[in-house]
Design a protein around this nucleic acid. Structure first.
Lengths: 221, 221
DNA sequence: TAGATTGTTAATCGATTAACAATC
DNA sequence: TAGATTGTTAATCGATTAACAATC
């Protein structure tokens, strides 16, 4: 019943909606594993901690996946969200920085399970090069640019000290990287074609501290 | 010039504004260390990646910290934000789960530097109990409730497998915890007086993947 | 005083919610 | 058909932006 045949969204999707997709996806994974075939927007929303209206609105930014009267097929919706999130393909990753955070990333099996394959870990510290990080051996960061240039690497996780992060990003960008997952506490300067996702655990902890101390907050965005 | 003497905010502060406070705080720390005494909303906003109007609006939820004509005193604003975020006092923390993430948290020196002192690490796995995690020795999780009940613990970081997280939260709540920093991928069921800050690295990575694959996004919330 | 920049209001923009028509 | 629940619109709510008066 569309007046157009394009499948691409006509309007930009709100970032807030996109951030909720992985949550829905997570609970759908659980439902499927439990052998549950159908779920209503009401019960899935309750699991995810949002309203049913919001869940349906979020999904309808991307298409219609349910059936009036009987809810959503868990397999169908799971597959649809997986496809939207790009989880139906695999991503090759490198981690730069073999400190606490870099090592934790390299050792966590949950990423590979969702198609995020960490292929290499780099560090510039001679005492770390050659040691094990997860199942990988730490490579010399001097070879980072050549490594990324010479094979397909989709995402680079930067887990180096703050003052080294921009230089690492520059090397990665020059080598053609398109996605950066940045754990350093600096806003990276990169061209528009490069997507940066910023993670800041200290900020998250400070926000918790503010709320703990009786700070009044509005909508739980 | 207030018509009231209360210092508490009259309206709830938007969560979005609170989440930006640590970013401003971070750049103010850098400015102070560089010996810079004053900063305009325009230049601080540029560092933080927001508009000057938004920065001023965010600050004015909490009070007036600048001086018309000459900007903000970096010391004054740094101290004010630190006080708002509760960084002028220290927080005692425990970490539950001595796996990759728990160990990384326990080893990261940046938390203590901002007043978040990790006092103990717990695990239920016999092969981990007694081993070192950062500068701490891993304690038996069986003693978690007694530990938290018997001393002041402000924040507990939950870094255990997903299926164990709710049980750990129940023990913590029964022992009187008020703040939980949750790294498990489950929505914790806790009473209203307990504040939960959720961290989900996998969701962050999925969001990056979506944007990488050409997903259109709206406002960069 | 003139220049600069904050504090604050009103206008705009975007996201959430509520309601209900469509339809399985 | 009757019951249920989605898809979608319009109304509400909240956050951001722009503009400028206040004032250092």
């Amino acid at each position: 019943m569309n007046d157009t045949t394009t499948t691409a969204p006509r309007r930009p999707i709100p970032m807030a909606a996109i951030k909720r997709l992985p949550i829905y996806y997570h609970y759908l994974t659980g439902l499927r594993e439990a052998g549950i075939l159908r779920v209503s927007s009401d019960s899935l929303a309750r699991m995810a901690g949002v309203t049913a209206a919001q869940l349906r609105r979020d999904l309808n930014h991307f298409g219609s996946f349910g059936q009036q009267g009987c809810g959503y097929n868990t397999d169908v919706l799971h597959a649809a969200l997986g496809s939207i999130l790009g989880l139906d393909r695999s991503y090759r990753m490198v981690v730069i920085g073999a400190g606490n955070i870099g090592s934790a990333l390299a050792s966590y099996p949950g990423f590979a399970r969702r198609g995020f394959q960490i292929e290499a870990v780099f560090d510039s510290d001679a005492s770390r090069i050659g040691t094990a990080s997860g199942s990988l051996s730490v490579l010399d960061a001097a070879g980072l640019g050549a490594y990324v240039s010479s094979r397909r690497v989709d995402i680079a996780a930067i887990a180096v000290p703050d003052q080294a992060a921009q230089a690492v990003a520059d090397v990665l960008v020059a080598a053609g990287i398109r996605g950066i997952w940045n754990f350093a506490h600096v806003r990276l300067n990169v061209p528009d074609i490069v997507t940066v996702e910023q993670v800041n655990l200290t900020d998250s902890l400070m926000t918790l501290a503010y709320r703990l101390d009786g700070g009044q907050v509005g909508s739980g965005a």
